[in-house]
Amino acid sequence: MHNPDSGQGGVIFKVFDDVSVERRRQPRPPRPKTARAASVLVRFFSLFAVWLVLSGMFDAFHMTLGAVSCLGVTLFSLRLLPPRADAPFPFRLVFRLPLYGLWLTWEIVKANFWVLYLVFHPRMMEKINPRLITFKSRLTSRGALTVFANSITLTPGTITVSVNERGHFLVHAIDGKSAEGLPGEMEQKIADTFGE
């Protein structure tokens, strides 16, 4: 390996260190066909459940219409968002994400009352202290990072301004109290949920 700081190629090497998108993954066993089939089935049945809730008519004609529609949408979504080639379908997410949702709701409610107190405070301009903070998360997958970013945005007092795929967060916080808890417990919970 050349010395990155010498010669013309140095800049490229530096950029490469910084921008490496393709992380090294652990070599996994080749994907079985069943994982793909499971992905398709889960998509179809979750869409069909939504259809049943929306429709509310359980006669044969409307069920057939629903099945045909959901089949079409599933095929379309396979073109748009192909199932992951290198990982089995994450069944544990299906069970653990609702639990995380409940925990998050409680956090949101707690944080909301603090911001509500700030807004109704007569000397609000002295209380608030907006700032931008940066940190690096240890989460790696796109799904986990997206859930993390949206959780930060949902928790009042903090907004995710930008995220990239390497986990660099730029967060706008409305006061010091909201900012100090990051990344903290939430990241740990998400890491547990996604199994990272």
Binding site: V115, P156, H172
Partner: peptide, 26 residues
């Protein structure tokens, strides 16, 4: 009410977004 009040009172776009985006969501 709080979200709308914050939308009027706060000083800049970023802090107003806290109100418009999330207190309203809650």
């Amino acid at each position: 009410t709080g979200g709308t009040l914050g939308l009027i009172r706060l000083p800049d776009v970023y802090s107003r977004l806290h109100m418009a985006g999330k207190i309203d969501t809650m």
